[in-house]
């Protein structure tokens, strides 16, 4: 899990990215959510020895990142930060699966390495698109899209609340952690007792805050329902985006483009 300061910065950065003004930012979040979901399912649906057929899928994150003007380096850093988990589980494959999968010249490539490569590619593909989704739609956009697509209202509303108070509470937490470390000259680490009291104070404050928020809501006529004006009509651009991309994904799922392309090229060369 991220360190609290960097975690906070990261959320803030993603949130700022979502304020962008490109056509991808303006696009109905539902379209992006659906396209990304279909993308992920398609990518993971390949069997574990797939390498080349996965490559064309990079076009989707590439376009999202390119046309959305997202910072590549920042996204890459995020991907690298979570990479170890996939890496450590994936690295067992070359150790356990040693049968030669194919021979290229004198080099024999084992199935384990192929499937390990496949895992890492899937990993990069799925993670970059999810990060791009948030950076292009914002968390609130995704929440509203979910609600429009049928997620239960109480769930979505509390999700919006969570995101709203994430900033306030994380900020509070950071201040407390900082104040503690300023006074704890000797140790950089926090014992469980200090932890419990620090987090406990945070919790009590959070509970009080929840009560005050509820009060503020009641003062403005809250009766259990949270009303919202959300002009979210269907526009042809969003539909075209969704249908176009999903169509392409499915096509690429059953048609190995690189293989055909490569056959063409090597055919010419040879």
């Amino acid at each position: 899990m991220a360190n609290i300061d960097s975690g906070f910065l990261q959320i803030g950065r993603m949130d700022t990215l979502a304020q962008g003004k490109t056509w991808l930012h303006r696009l109905d979040p539902r379209a992006k959510l659906i396209a990304v979901s279909v993308f992920i399912v398609t990518v993971v649906s390949f069997d574990k020895y797939t390498l080349s057929a996965l490559i064309p899928f990079f076009v989707f994150p590439a376009i999202l990142v390119g046309a959305g003007g997202l910072p590549v380096r920042f996204l890459m850093a995020r991907v690298l930060m979570v990479a170890p988990f996939a890496f450590f589980i994936g690295i067992f494959n070359p150790l356990l699966d040693r049968q030669t999968f194919f021979q290229m010249g004198t080099i024999a490539v084992s199935g384990g390495w192929i499937s390990f490569g496949s895992i890492m590619i899937r990993f990069v593909l799925t993670i970059t698109t999810v990060l791009a989704l948030i950076a292009l739609s914002g968390f609130n956009g995704v929440c509203l899209a979910m609600e429009k697509l049928g997620a239960p209202k109480p769930f979505v509303v509390q999700l919006l609340f969570l995101y709203r108070y994430l900033f306030v509470l994380t900020d509070e937490a950071i201040r407390m952690v900082r104040a503690r470390s300023l006074r704890a000259f000797h140790s950089k680490t926090m014992g469980i007792k200090t932890f419990a009291s620090l987090v406990g104070h945070l919790l009590l404050r959070a509970l009080d805050r929840a009560q005050r928020i509820h009060l503020a809501m009641c003062c403005r006529g809250f009766d259990g329902r949270v009303p919202m004006i959300k002009p979210m009509g269907l526009d042809w651009k969003a539909v075209a985006f969704t249908v176009g991309w999903c169509g392409l994904f499915i096509l690429l799922r059953f048609y190995n483009l690189p293989l055909k392309l490569g056959a063409l090229v090597t055919g010419w060369v040879g």
Binding site: Y163, T170, V177, T189, L202, G224
Partner: peptide, 22 residues
């Protein structure tokens, strides 16, 4: 109807504290 804001704030609390290590 107290539950909805309470859930949101508690979620934010858990999220924040998960980043605090002891």
């Amino acid at each position: 109807d107290r539950k909805i804001p309470l859930m949101g704030v508690m979620g934010a609390f858990v999220f924040a504290t998960q980043m605090i290590n002891f």
